[in-house]
């Protein structure tokens, strides 16, 4: 464990990058999830078709291929993004395509009677969505987005392959200089696990706050 202590500054710097990539990519993913999830439920083809193409394309190709594409190929089209932007965009866009399904499923999970009651009470479509459908869908979404954020955290390790000095990158660097690797890699795994615990703990708290008073077994 001495080696971990010796390199603590380096590793902590790596944790910082890991957190930055995770948070920014999560923001991109949430935005894309809602944009594409709502667009796919739209009545208009002009909104539905691009959303379907986005989801299929980013779910069908490998995240690492997307990451490499942004990092290695895009510059030859004259667009040179910094490594951080490549990482955040690739991870955010790819996971947004998965999040699209979360948003869609959650919206569909709200019973039809809820929308009918909103019509009967003369809510406008926008009010019905904001006041009735969304709060109920959010309850379904919270734990699923929690899992998605953990996938994003894990995916953030891939930015080490495009030279971004995150936790995995630093661990790999230390390994290359030293022979004793067990301590470093075990520590890194535990650090990821702890961050993931924080994420799922947070998601649980949000879910509990959203389902205040609501008994899942009834009504």
């Amino acid at each position: 464990m001495q080696i971990v202590w010796e390199y603590r500054q380096l590793l902590l710097g790596g944790v910082r990058i890991t957190l930055i990539v995770t948070v920014l990519a999560a923001v991109v993913a949430v935005l894309m999830s809602f944009a594409s999830g709502l667009a796919r439920e739209s009545r208009h083809r002009i909104l539905r078709v691009p959303a379907i193409i986005y989801v299929e394309l980013f779910r069908g190709t490998s995240l690492l291929a997307q990451l490499f594409w942004l990092f290695f190929v895009l510059p030859s089209f004259g667009i040179e993004l910094p490594a951080l932007a490549c990482g955040v965009l690739a991870i955010g866009l790819c996971n947004g395509a998965y999040g699209s399904e979360i948003v869609r499923g959650a919206l569909r999970s709200v019973p039809r009677g809820q929308r009918e009651a909103a019509i009967a009470l003369n809510y406008s479509p926008a009010q019905s969505f904001r006041l009735i459908v969304l709060p109920q869908a959010a309850r379904v979404m919270a734990p699923l987005f929690g899992s998605l954020f953990i996938e994003i955290l894990k995916a953030s390790s891939l930015v080490s392959l495009i030279t971004l000095p995150d936790l995995t990158f630093q661990a790999k660097n230390i390994i290359l200089v030293h022979l004793n690797t067990t301590a470093v890699l075990s520590t890194v795994l535990v650090v990821y696990f702890v961050i993931a615990l924080f994420i799922s703990g947070g998601a649980q708290r949000i879910e509990r706050a959203l389902s205040r008073g609501v008994d899942h077994t009834a009504g």
């Binding site: 953990i150 894990k154 953030s156 891939l158 080490s160 795994l189 696990f193 993931a196 615990l197």
Partner: peptide, 8 residues
């Protein structure tokens, strides 16, 4: 499930 495949 909570740790990256790459590190594993």
């Amino acid at each position: 499930r909570a740790t990256p495949l790459l590190v594993q």
